[in-house]
Design a protein around this nucleic acid. Structure first.
Lengths: 235, 235
DNA sequence: TGACTTTAGTAGCGCATTGCTACTAATTCG
DNA sequence: CGAATTAGTAGCAATGCGCTACTAAAGTCA
Protein backbone atom coordinates (compact mmCIF):
# COMPACT_ATOMS: atom_id res chain seq x y z
CA UNK A 1 0.00 0.00 0.00
CA UNK A 2 2.30 2.70 -1.21
CA UNK A 3 0.90 4.17 -4.43
CA UNK A 4 -1.76 6.72 -3.72
CA UNK A 5 -3.31 9.62 -5.54
CA UNK A 6 -5.27 12.76 -4.80
CA UNK A 7 -4.64 12.35 -1.13
CA UNK A 8 -5.71 15.84 -0.31
CA UNK A 9 -9.11 16.64 -1.77
CA UNK A 10 -9.08 20.41 -1.45
CA UNK A 11 -8.77 21.03 2.23
CA UNK A 12 -10.27 24.11 3.74
CA UNK A 13 -8.98 25.93 6.77
CA UNK A 14 -10.79 25.43 10.05
CA UNK A 15 -11.33 27.87 12.88
CA UNK A 16 -9.85 27.48 16.31
CA UNK A 17 -9.13 29.71 19.25
CA UNK A 18 -5.74 31.37 19.23
CA UNK A 19 -3.55 33.46 21.49
CA UNK A 20 -0.31 35.40 21.19
CA UNK A 21 2.00 34.89 24.18
CA UNK A 22 5.13 36.87 24.89
CA UNK A 23 8.17 35.90 26.95
CA UNK A 24 10.06 39.05 27.87
CA UNK A 25 13.62 38.56 29.10
CA UNK A 26 15.91 41.03 30.81
CA UNK A 27 19.24 40.84 32.65
CA UNK A 28 18.55 41.31 36.33
CA UNK A 29 20.72 40.70 39.39
CA UNK A 30 22.97 38.30 37.54
CA UNK A 31 20.09 36.24 36.22
CA UNK A 32 17.96 36.16 33.14
CA UNK A 33 14.56 37.30 34.34
CA UNK A 34 11.14 36.77 32.78
CA UNK A 35 8.23 39.16 33.10
CA UNK A 36 5.19 37.63 34.78
CA UNK A 37 1.82 39.24 35.39
CA UNK A 38 -0.19 38.53 38.52
CA UNK A 39 -3.67 37.35 37.67
CA UNK A 40 -6.20 40.09 38.27
CA UNK A 41 -8.63 37.59 39.71
CA UNK A 42 -6.99 36.06 42.80
CA UNK A 43 -9.18 32.97 42.44
CA UNK A 44 -7.91 32.35 38.93
CA UNK A 45 -6.44 28.94 38.32
CA UNK A 46 -3.15 30.43 37.19
CA UNK A 47 -1.84 33.07 39.53
CA UNK A 48 1.02 34.05 37.26
CA UNK A 49 0.83 34.59 33.54
CA UNK A 50 2.93 35.55 30.63
CA UNK A 51 1.62 38.66 28.90
CA UNK A 52 -0.73 37.49 26.18
CA UNK A 53 -3.74 38.49 24.17
CA UNK A 54 -5.87 37.27 21.33
CA UNK A 55 -4.79 38.53 17.95
CA UNK A 56 -7.10 41.17 16.57
CA UNK A 57 -8.89 40.69 13.30
CA UNK A 58 -6.40 40.55 10.45
CA UNK A 59 -3.55 41.28 12.85
CA UNK A 60 -0.41 39.23 12.08
CA UNK A 61 1.11 37.38 15.05
CA UNK A 62 4.28 39.43 15.12
CA UNK A 63 2.34 42.65 15.23
CA UNK A 64 0.13 41.31 18.00
CA UNK A 65 3.21 40.29 19.96
CA UNK A 66 4.60 43.77 19.57
CA UNK A 67 1.34 45.22 20.80
CA UNK A 68 1.29 42.95 23.84
CA UNK A 69 4.91 43.79 24.65
CA UNK A 70 4.31 47.50 24.32
CA UNK A 71 1.30 47.16 26.57
CA UNK A 72 3.48 46.06 29.44
CA UNK A 73 6.71 47.90 28.69
CA UNK A 74 5.40 51.15 27.26
CA UNK A 75 7.97 50.82 24.49
CA UNK A 76 8.79 48.02 22.05
CA UNK A 77 11.31 45.40 23.16
CA UNK A 78 14.86 45.62 21.86
CA UNK A 79 14.41 42.45 19.86
CA UNK A 80 11.46 40.22 19.12
CA UNK A 81 11.54 36.74 17.64
CA UNK A 82 9.01 34.01 17.23
CA UNK A 83 9.59 30.98 19.42
CA UNK A 84 7.08 28.46 18.11
CA UNK A 85 3.43 27.57 17.98
CA UNK A 86 2.12 25.54 20.90
CA UNK A 87 -1.06 23.66 20.36
CA UNK A 88 -0.87 20.44 22.30
CA UNK A 89 -2.76 19.52 25.41
CA UNK A 90 -0.66 21.62 27.74
CA UNK A 91 -3.05 24.12 29.25
CA UNK A 92 -3.10 27.76 28.25
CA UNK A 93 -4.55 30.23 30.78
CA UNK A 94 -7.07 31.46 28.23
CA UNK A 95 -7.81 27.96 27.03
CA UNK A 96 -6.52 28.90 23.59
CA UNK A 97 -6.20 25.86 21.37
CA UNK A 98 -3.24 27.36 19.58
CA UNK A 99 -0.62 29.74 20.96
CA UNK A 100 1.96 31.56 18.90
CA UNK A 101 4.73 32.55 21.26
CA UNK A 102 7.39 35.23 20.96
CA UNK A 103 10.48 36.13 22.93
CA UNK A 104 11.43 39.75 23.47
CA UNK A 105 14.62 41.15 24.93
CA UNK A 106 14.34 44.14 27.24
CA UNK A 107 17.21 46.43 28.24
CA UNK A 108 17.75 46.89 31.93
CA UNK A 109 16.59 50.50 32.08
CA UNK A 110 13.35 49.76 30.27
CA UNK A 111 12.73 46.77 32.52
CA UNK A 112 12.79 49.04 35.56
CA UNK A 113 9.43 50.54 34.61
CA UNK A 114 6.74 47.94 34.50
CA UNK A 115 3.16 48.01 35.83
CA UNK A 116 2.62 47.17 39.45
CA UNK A 117 0.98 43.85 38.62
CA UNK A 118 4.14 42.73 36.84
CA UNK A 119 7.31 41.22 38.28
CA UNK A 120 10.61 40.05 36.88
CA UNK A 121 11.43 36.50 37.95
CA UNK A 122 14.59 34.47 37.41
CA UNK A 123 13.74 32.13 34.55
CA UNK A 124 15.06 29.24 36.57
CA UNK A 125 12.84 29.92 39.57
CA UNK A 126 9.41 30.28 38.09
CA UNK A 127 6.31 29.99 40.24
CA UNK A 128 3.53 27.59 39.35
CA UNK A 129 2.16 28.54 35.95
CA UNK A 130 0.00 27.10 33.21
CA UNK A 131 2.07 24.29 31.66
CA UNK A 132 2.05 25.86 28.24
CA UNK A 133 3.38 29.12 29.61
CA UNK A 134 6.14 27.36 31.47
CA UNK A 135 7.15 25.47 28.34
CA UNK A 136 7.30 28.76 26.46
CA UNK A 137 9.77 30.24 28.89
CA UNK A 138 12.11 27.28 28.49
CA UNK A 139 11.77 27.42 24.72
CA UNK A 140 12.39 31.17 24.75
CA UNK A 141 15.72 30.76 26.48
CA UNK A 142 16.67 28.03 24.01
CA UNK A 143 15.83 30.27 21.07
CA UNK A 144 17.94 33.09 22.46
CA UNK A 145 20.89 30.80 23.10
CA UNK A 146 20.77 29.37 19.63
CA UNK A 147 20.48 32.74 17.95
CA UNK A 148 22.91 34.76 19.98
CA UNK A 149 25.85 34.12 17.70
CA UNK A 150 23.84 34.80 14.58
CA UNK A 151 22.08 38.01 15.51
CA UNK A 152 23.32 41.01 17.50
CA UNK A 153 21.01 40.21 20.39
CA UNK A 154 23.44 41.05 23.15
CA UNK A 155 24.11 44.52 21.82
CA UNK A 156 20.43 45.39 21.89
CA UNK A 157 20.42 44.96 25.63
CA UNK A 158 23.12 47.58 26.07
CA UNK A 159 23.21 51.34 25.55
CA UNK A 160 25.03 52.60 22.45
CA UNK A 161 28.34 52.64 24.25
CA UNK A 162 29.36 50.03 26.79
CA UNK A 163 32.39 48.43 28.36
CA UNK A 164 33.60 45.03 27.26
CA UNK A 165 32.97 43.70 30.75
CA UNK A 166 29.33 44.73 30.44
CA UNK A 167 29.12 43.03 27.07
CA UNK A 168 30.67 39.88 28.46
CA UNK A 169 28.19 39.83 31.33
CA UNK A 170 25.29 39.99 28.89
CA UNK A 171 26.71 37.14 26.86
CA UNK A 172 27.23 35.08 30.00
CA UNK A 173 23.66 35.69 31.09
CA UNK A 174 22.17 34.88 27.73
CA UNK A 175 24.33 31.81 27.27
CA UNK A 176 23.99 30.71 30.87
CA UNK A 177 27.64 29.92 31.35
CA UNK A 178 30.82 31.82 32.24
CA UNK A 179 33.20 32.93 29.52
CA UNK A 180 36.91 33.45 29.79
CA UNK A 181 37.81 37.11 29.63
CA UNK A 182 40.85 36.94 27.39
CA UNK A 183 39.27 34.46 25.01
CA UNK A 184 36.09 36.49 24.82
CA UNK A 185 37.93 39.62 23.86
CA UNK A 186 40.10 37.85 21.36
CA UNK A 187 37.10 36.31 19.62
CA UNK A 188 35.31 39.66 19.69
CA UNK A 189 38.22 41.37 18.03
CA UNK A 190 38.50 38.68 15.38
CA UNK A 191 34.85 39.20 14.51
CA UNK A 192 35.19 42.98 13.99
CA UNK A 193 31.97 43.58 15.87
CA UNK A 194 32.88 46.54 18.05
CA UNK A 195 35.08 49.60 17.82
CA UNK A 196 36.52 51.62 20.69
CA UNK A 197 35.33 55.14 21.41
CA UNK A 198 37.69 57.64 23.02
CA UNK A 199 35.69 57.63 26.22
CA UNK A 200 36.43 55.82 29.44
CA UNK A 201 34.21 55.08 32.35
CA UNK A 202 35.31 54.87 35.97
CA UNK A 203 32.96 52.66 37.92
CA UNK A 204 33.92 52.95 41.55
CA UNK A 205 36.99 50.91 42.22
CA UNK A 206 39.43 49.63 39.72
CA UNK A 207 40.88 50.81 36.50
CA UNK A 208 38.45 52.72 34.25
CA UNK A 209 37.13 50.79 31.29
CA UNK A 210 37.18 51.96 27.73
CA UNK A 211 33.78 52.37 26.11
CA UNK A 212 33.02 50.58 22.86
CA UNK A 213 30.22 50.80 20.36
CA UNK A 214 28.63 48.15 18.18
CA UNK A 215 30.05 48.60 14.70
CA UNK A 216 30.14 45.40 12.68
CA UNK A 217 32.82 45.91 10.10
CA UNK A 218 32.67 42.91 7.88
CA UNK A 219 31.16 39.50 7.76
CA UNK A 220 32.88 36.73 9.49
CA UNK A 221 34.03 34.02 7.17
CA UNK A 222 31.33 31.40 7.07
CA UNK A 223 31.42 28.72 9.69
CA UNK A 224 33.96 26.11 8.90
CA UNK A 225 33.72 22.37 8.93
CA UNK A 226 31.05 20.35 10.55
CA UNK A 227 30.78 20.43 14.28
CA UNK A 228 28.64 17.41 15.11
CA UNK A 229 27.64 19.08 18.35
CA UNK A 230 25.19 16.33 18.99
CA UNK A 231 24.00 16.44 22.54
CA UNK A 232 21.65 13.55 22.75
CA UNK A 233 19.30 11.58 20.65
CA UNK A 234 15.92 13.22 20.34
CA UNK A 235 12.91 11.22 19.39
CA UNK B 1 4.39 57.87 30.34
CA UNK B 2 6.01 54.74 31.66
CA UNK B 3 4.17 53.59 34.77
CA UNK B 4 1.12 51.55 33.91
CA UNK B 5 -1.03 49.02 35.62
CA UNK B 6 -3.44 46.26 34.76
CA UNK B 7 -2.53 46.47 31.13
CA UNK B 8 -4.17 43.22 30.26
CA UNK B 9 -7.76 43.08 31.47
CA UNK B 10 -8.42 39.35 31.19
CA UNK B 11 -7.97 38.62 27.52
CA UNK B 12 -9.90 35.84 25.91
CA UNK B 13 -8.77 33.77 22.96
CA UNK B 14 -10.28 34.59 19.61
CA UNK B 15 -11.06 32.26 16.74
CA UNK B 16 -9.34 32.36 13.41
CA UNK B 17 -8.84 30.02 10.49
CA UNK B 18 -5.81 27.78 10.72
CA UNK B 19 -3.89 25.33 8.57
CA UNK B 20 -1.07 22.87 9.04
CA UNK B 21 1.47 22.95 6.19
CA UNK B 22 4.25 20.43 5.66
CA UNK B 23 7.52 20.86 3.78
CA UNK B 24 8.89 17.42 2.95
CA UNK B 25 12.54 17.27 1.93
CA UNK B 26 14.47 14.45 0.34
CA UNK B 27 17.89 14.04 -1.29
CA UNK B 28 17.37 13.70 -5.03
CA UNK B 29 19.80 13.91 -7.92
CA UNK B 30 22.31 15.86 -5.94
CA UNK B 31 19.75 18.40 -4.77
CA UNK B 32 17.48 18.87 -1.80
CA UNK B 33 14.02 18.35 -3.21
CA UNK B 34 10.64 19.47 -1.87
CA UNK B 35 7.38 17.63 -2.37
CA UNK B 36 4.76 19.65 -4.22
CA UNK B 37 1.20 18.67 -5.05
CA UNK B 38 -0.44 19.71 -8.27
CA UNK B 39 -3.75 21.48 -7.62
CA UNK B 40 -6.68 19.24 -8.40
CA UNK B 41 -8.53 22.12 -9.97
CA UNK B 42 -6.45 23.34 -12.93
CA UNK B 43 -8.09 26.75 -12.70
CA UNK B 44 -6.96 27.14 -9.09
CA UNK B 45 -4.94 30.24 -8.36
CA UNK B 46 -2.05 28.21 -7.06
CA UNK B 47 -1.07 25.38 -9.33
CA UNK B 48 1.44 23.91 -6.92
CA UNK B 49 0.91 23.41 -3.22
CA UNK B 50 2.66 22.11 -0.18
CA UNK B 51 0.72 19.28 1.43
CA UNK B 52 -1.55 20.85 4.00
CA UNK B 53 -4.78 20.41 5.86
CA UNK B 54 -6.85 21.98 8.56
CA UNK B 55 -6.20 20.59 12.00
CA UNK B 56 -9.00 18.40 13.23
CA UNK B 57 -10.87 19.19 16.39
CA UNK B 58 -8.57 18.92 19.39
CA UNK B 59 -5.77 17.65 17.16
CA UNK B 60 -2.36 19.14 18.13
CA UNK B 61 -0.38 20.69 15.26
CA UNK B 62 2.40 18.10 15.35
CA UNK B 63 -0.07 15.28 15.10
CA UNK B 64 -1.85 16.96 12.22
CA UNK B 65 1.46 17.43 10.44
CA UNK B 66 2.21 13.76 10.90
CA UNK B 67 -1.17 12.90 9.46
CA UNK B 68 -0.65 15.14 6.44
CA UNK B 69 2.81 13.67 5.83
CA UNK B 70 1.54 10.12 6.10
CA UNK B 71 -1.21 10.98 3.70
CA UNK B 72 1.30 11.68 0.95
CA UNK B 73 4.09 9.30 1.87
CA UNK B 74 2.16 6.36 3.22
CA UNK B 75 4.59 6.24 6.12
CA UNK B 76 5.72 8.83 8.64
CA UNK B 77 8.71 10.98 7.69
CA UNK B 78 12.10 10.12 9.18
CA UNK B 79 12.08 13.34 11.18
CA UNK B 80 9.54 16.05 11.77
CA UNK B 81 10.14 19.47 13.26
CA UNK B 82 8.10 22.58 13.55
CA UNK B 83 9.34 25.46 11.43
CA UNK B 84 7.24 28.37 12.59
CA UNK B 85 3.79 29.90 12.51
CA UNK B 86 3.03 32.12 9.54
CA UNK B 87 0.20 34.54 9.89
CA UNK B 88 1.07 37.67 8.00
CA UNK B 89 -0.47 38.92 4.77
CA UNK B 90 1.38 36.44 2.57
CA UNK B 91 -1.32 34.43 0.91
CA UNK B 92 -2.06 30.85 1.87
CA UNK B 93 -3.77 28.66 -0.74
CA UNK B 94 -6.62 27.89 1.65
CA UNK B 95 -6.79 31.49 2.83
CA UNK B 96 -5.90 30.33 6.31
CA UNK B 97 -5.19 33.27 8.57
CA UNK B 98 -2.64 31.29 10.53
CA UNK B 99 -0.41 28.48 9.30
CA UNK B 100 1.70 26.25 11.48
CA UNK B 101 4.39 24.77 9.28
CA UNK B 102 6.53 21.67 9.72
CA UNK B 103 9.51 20.23 7.93
CA UNK B 104 9.85 16.50 7.43
CA UNK B 105 12.82 14.55 6.14
CA UNK B 106 12.17 11.67 3.80
CA UNK B 107 14.66 8.91 2.95
CA UNK B 108 15.33 8.35 -0.70
CA UNK B 109 13.56 5.01 -0.93
CA UNK B 110 10.39 6.30 0.68
CA UNK B 111 10.45 9.34 -1.58
CA UNK B 112 10.29 7.10 -4.63
CA UNK B 113 6.69 6.22 -3.89
CA UNK B 114 4.46 9.25 -3.91
CA UNK B 115 1.04 9.81 -5.45
CA UNK B 116 0.86 10.73 -9.11
CA UNK B 117 -0.23 14.27 -8.35
CA UNK B 118 2.96 14.83 -6.37
CA UNK B 119 6.43 15.75 -7.62
CA UNK B 120 9.79 16.32 -6.00
CA UNK B 121 11.28 19.68 -7.01
CA UNK B 122 14.72 21.12 -6.27
CA UNK B 123 14.11 23.57 -3.44
CA UNK B 124 16.04 26.19 -5.36
CA UNK B 125 13.92 25.89 -8.48
CA UNK B 126 10.38 26.14 -7.21
CA UNK B 127 7.51 26.97 -9.54
CA UNK B 128 5.14 29.82 -8.80
CA UNK B 129 3.43 29.12 -5.49
CA UNK B 130 1.40 30.94 -2.88
CA UNK B 131 3.83 33.34 -1.20
CA UNK B 132 3.32 31.81 2.20
CA UNK B 133 4.17 28.36 0.91
CA UNK B 134 7.29 29.61 -0.78
CA UNK B 135 8.43 31.29 2.41
CA UNK B 136 7.89 28.03 4.27
CA UNK B 137 10.22 26.13 1.98
CA UNK B 138 13.01 28.63 2.53
CA UNK B 139 12.42 28.57 6.27
CA UNK B 140 12.38 24.77 6.27
CA UNK B 141 15.84 24.59 4.74
CA UNK B 142 17.08 27.12 7.28
CA UNK B 143 15.70 25.07 10.14
CA UNK B 144 17.37 21.91 8.87
CA UNK B 145 20.72 23.65 8.42
CA UNK B 146 20.62 25.11 11.88
CA UNK B 147 19.65 21.84 13.52
CA UNK B 148 21.79 19.41 11.63
CA UNK B 149 24.64 19.52 14.12
CA UNK B 150 22.34 19.16 17.10
CA UNK B 151 20.11 16.33 16.01
CA UNK B 152 20.94 13.16 14.09
CA UNK B 153 18.98 14.35 11.07
CA UNK B 154 21.39 13.09 8.45
CA UNK B 155 21.36 9.56 9.81
CA UNK B 156 17.60 9.36 9.48
CA UNK B 157 17.88 9.78 5.75
CA UNK B 158 20.11 6.72 5.46
CA UNK B 159 19.50 3.02 5.94
CA UNK B 160 20.86 1.46 9.15
CA UNK B 161 24.23 0.83 7.55
CA UNK B 162 25.83 3.21 5.11
CA UNK B 163 29.20 4.22 3.75
CA UNK B 164 30.92 7.35 4.96
CA UNK B 165 30.76 8.77 1.44
CA UNK B 166 27.00 8.41 1.51
CA UNK B 167 26.86 10.12 4.88
CA UNK B 168 29.04 12.94 3.63
CA UNK B 169 26.79 13.43 0.60
CA UNK B 170 23.78 13.80 2.84
CA UNK B 171 25.54 16.35 4.98
CA UNK B 172 26.60 18.28 1.91
CA UNK B 173 23.07 18.31 0.59
CA UNK B 174 21.53 19.38 3.84
CA UNK B 175 24.17 22.02 4.47
CA UNK B 176 24.26 23.17 0.88
CA UNK B 177 28.03 23.28 0.65
CA UNK B 178 30.86 20.86 -0.06
CA UNK B 179 32.82 19.34 2.80
CA UNK B 180 36.39 18.16 2.74
CA UNK B 181 36.62 14.40 2.93
CA UNK B 182 39.49 14.02 5.37
CA UNK B 183 38.21 16.75 7.67
CA UNK B 184 34.72 15.34 7.62
CA UNK B 185 35.89 11.91 8.66
CA UNK B 186 38.18 13.24 11.33
CA UNK B 187 35.40 15.31 12.89
CA UNK B 188 33.07 12.36 12.67
CA UNK B 189 35.50 10.16 14.50
CA UNK B 190 36.08 12.75 17.20
CA UNK B 191 32.34 12.88 17.82
CA UNK B 192 31.97 9.13 18.33
CA UNK B 193 28.84 9.08 16.26
CA UNK B 194 29.36 6.02 14.09
CA UNK B 195 30.93 2.63 14.42
CA UNK B 196 32.19 0.38 11.65
CA UNK B 197 30.46 -2.86 10.82
CA UNK B 198 32.43 -5.73 9.34
CA UNK B 199 30.68 -5.39 6.03
CA UNK B 200 31.95 -3.78 2.86
CA UNK B 201 30.07 -2.63 -0.17
CA UNK B 202 31.42 -2.64 -3.69
CA UNK B 203 29.65 -0.01 -5.75
CA UNK B 204 30.75 -0.47 -9.32
CA UNK B 205 34.20 0.94 -9.78
CA UNK B 206 36.67 1.79 -7.13
CA UNK B 207 37.66 0.38 -3.82
CA UNK B 208 34.80 -1.09 -1.77
CA UNK B 209 33.65 1.07 1.11
CA UNK B 210 33.25 -0.08 4.66
CA UNK B 211 29.73 0.12 6.07
CA UNK B 212 29.07 2.03 9.26
CA UNK B 213 26.14 2.32 11.57
CA UNK B 214 24.89 5.21 13.68
CA UNK B 215 25.97 4.51 17.23
CA UNK B 216 26.52 7.63 19.31
CA UNK B 217 28.90 6.66 22.07
CA UNK B 218 29.07 9.61 24.34
CA UNK B 219 28.20 13.23 24.37
CA UNK B 220 30.50 15.64 22.75
CA UNK B 221 31.95 18.15 25.15
CA UNK B 222 29.78 21.23 25.07
CA UNK B 223 30.62 23.83 22.49
CA UNK B 224 33.50 25.93 23.54
CA UNK B 225 33.94 29.65 23.50
CA UNK B 226 31.86 32.15 21.66
CA UNK B 227 31.82 32.10 17.92
CA UNK B 228 30.25 35.45 16.96
CA UNK B 229 29.15 33.92 13.68
CA UNK B 230 27.26 37.06 12.92
CA UNK B 231 26.21 37.08 9.31
CA UNK B 232 24.43 40.35 8.90
CA UNK B 233 22.41 42.79 10.84
CA UNK B 234 18.77 41.84 10.99
CA UNK B 235 16.13 44.40 11.71
C1' DT C 1 51.98 58.66 51.58
C1' DG C 2 52.29 53.99 50.41
C1' DA C 3 50.76 49.23 50.62
C1' DC C 4 46.63 46.66 49.42
C1' DT C 5 42.49 45.74 46.77
C1' DT C 6 39.86 45.86 42.71
C1' DT C 7 38.80 46.01 37.97
C1' DA C 8 40.64 46.46 33.03
C1' DG C 9 43.34 44.71 29.64
C1' DT C 10 47.28 41.86 27.33
C1' DA C 11 51.09 38.33 26.33
C1' DG C 12 52.05 34.13 25.26
C1' DC C 13 52.21 28.95 25.88
C1' DG C 14 50.15 24.57 24.75
C1' DC C 15 46.70 21.96 22.84
C1' DA C 16 42.84 20.90 19.76
C1' DT C 17 40.67 21.70 15.39
C1' DT C 18 40.59 22.39 10.60
C1' DG C 19 41.98 23.02 5.52
C1' DC C 20 44.79 21.05 2.53
C1' DT C 21 48.07 18.31 -0.23
C1' DA C 22 49.71 14.15 -0.94
C1' DC C 23 49.85 9.93 -0.33
C1' DT C 24 48.26 4.49 -0.13
C1' DA C 25 44.56 0.79 -0.98
C1' DA C 26 41.37 -1.85 -3.53
C1' DT C 27 38.56 -2.39 -7.03
C1' DT C 28 36.71 -2.21 -12.38
C1' DC C 29 37.56 -1.39 -17.23
C1' DG C 30 39.92 -2.09 -21.41
C1' DC D 1 48.83 -5.52 -17.09
C1' DG D 2 48.04 -0.45 -16.68
C1' DA D 3 44.76 3.37 -16.39
C1' DA D 4 40.84 5.06 -14.07
C1' DT D 5 38.03 5.37 -10.09
C1' DT D 6 36.61 5.45 -5.48
C1' DA D 7 37.96 4.70 -0.37
C1' DG D 8 40.69 5.95 3.20
C1' DT D 9 44.86 8.07 5.83
C1' DA D 10 49.23 10.81 7.09
C1' DG D 11 50.91 14.77 8.27
C1' DC D 12 51.90 19.82 7.78
C1' DA D 13 50.49 24.61 8.50
C1' DA D 14 47.46 27.77 10.29
C1' DT D 15 43.99 29.07 13.30
C1' DG D 16 41.23 28.98 17.47
C1' DC D 17 40.75 28.49 22.25
C1' DG D 18 41.65 27.73 27.45
C1' DC D 19 44.53 29.14 30.65
C1' DT D 20 48.15 31.25 33.58
C1' DA D 21 50.42 35.06 34.40
C1' DC D 22 51.35 39.19 33.82
C1' DT D 23 50.83 44.87 33.45
C1' DA D 24 47.80 49.15 34.14
C1' DA D 25 45.02 52.32 36.56
C1' DA D 26 41.98 53.38 39.65
C1' DG D 27 40.09 53.43 44.84
C1' DT D 28 40.75 52.28 50.04
C1' DC D 29 42.66 52.62 54.23
C1' DA D 30 46.11 52.45 57.76
Amino acid sequence: MRERSLVIPRPSARTLTAAIDVVLLTPRDGTLATLLLRASDPRARDRWLLPWDAPRIEEPPEQAALRVARGVLGVPPAALEQIAAFGDSRRHPGEAQLSVSFVGLVPHDVAAHVPENAVWVDHERLPLMAPRHRAMVDAAVDVVRRRIDQAPLAFRLLPPSFTLSELQSIYELLLGRPLHKASFRRALQAAFLVEPTDEWRSEGRGRPAQLFRYAPRRRRASRRGVRFDLIEQRD
